[in-house]
């Protein structure tokens, strides 16, 4: 849905609420914090430049737009998925300036000038990224909805591990641990798979990690 449609739908909902009883309104309304002139003022849009999978984009966005909605609703890059939209499931994981983040909690305007890699940007010249190929080989999914986030997360995980990052599973945080299965599981805990394909996801990541070491 584009911003205009969103606004129209909000306006319709507000109109509906106004026609219902006062008691209903009191229950349905969120707290009246900051109900000020800004609500009625026209929305100032913000100019945002992003480099996504090597391509440059210039957009004018409502400042409320998250990176996830920018990708999905404005640029038709629908590989990144909206699961919970509150930073709990990891389906929206993308890589921004080399680091994996939840795109649902990132305002696009705050990322002006940033370089982004999404699931669409991992394959090179039609050849699957090694992590994508490993997920296919190990059947690291069932329904597949969380998979783009899982794969982006796993790709970043390997970079973090190569940079010597510890995790909560690391016995001595001053050391750079081997990427054991418990380390992989801990480092992937921000990506939920409700089909519970976890054993195969871990196997896929382990295989790519071992390949990197050879």
């Amino acid at each position: 849905m584009n911003d205009l449609l969103k606004l129209r739908s909000m306006a319709t909902r507000r109109g509906f609420l106004q026609t219902t009883g006062a008691a209903t309104l009191a229950l349905a309304s969120p707290p009246a914090v900051g109900e000020t002139a800004a609500q009625t003022a026209p929305l100032p849009s913000e100019h945002v430049r992003l480099t996504i999978n090597g391509r440059h984009y210039a957009l004018d966005l409502d400042p409320r737009t998250t990176l996830l909605d920018t990708l999905r609703e404005h640029l038709a890059l629908t590989g990144s998925k909206k699961g919970c939209d509150q930073g709990q499931c990891g389906a929206c994981t993308i890589i921004v300036d080399g680091q994996r983040i939840n795109s649902c909690l990132a305002l696009a305007v705050m990322h002006d000038g940033d370089e982004i890699t999404t699931i669409e940007g991992l394959a090179e010249e039609g050849a699957l990224h090694p992590m994508q190929a490993a997920f296919v080989r190990h059947d690291g999914f069932q329904c597949g909805y969380c998979t783009p986030g899982q794969i982006c997360s796993a790709v970043a995980l390997l970079s973090e591990h190569q940079a010597g990052w510890p995790s909560y599973a690391t016995a001595d945080v001053a050391t750079a641990p081997a990427l054991t299965d418990p380390e992989i599981a801990e480092r992937m805990s921000g990506n939920i798979c409700r089909c519970s394909a976890y054993p195969n996801i871990v196997a896929a990541i382990r295989e790519v990690a071992e390949g990197d070491r050879q």
């Binding site: 930073g87 990891g90 994981t93 680091q99 994996r100 983040i101 939840n102 909690l105 990132a106 997360s153 970043a156 995980l157 973090e160 480092r187 805990s189 921000g190 990506n191």
Partner: peptide, 8 residues
Amino acid sequence: ASTQLRNK
């Protein structure tokens, strides 16, 4: 949290 959240 998770790595994704800690990165932000």
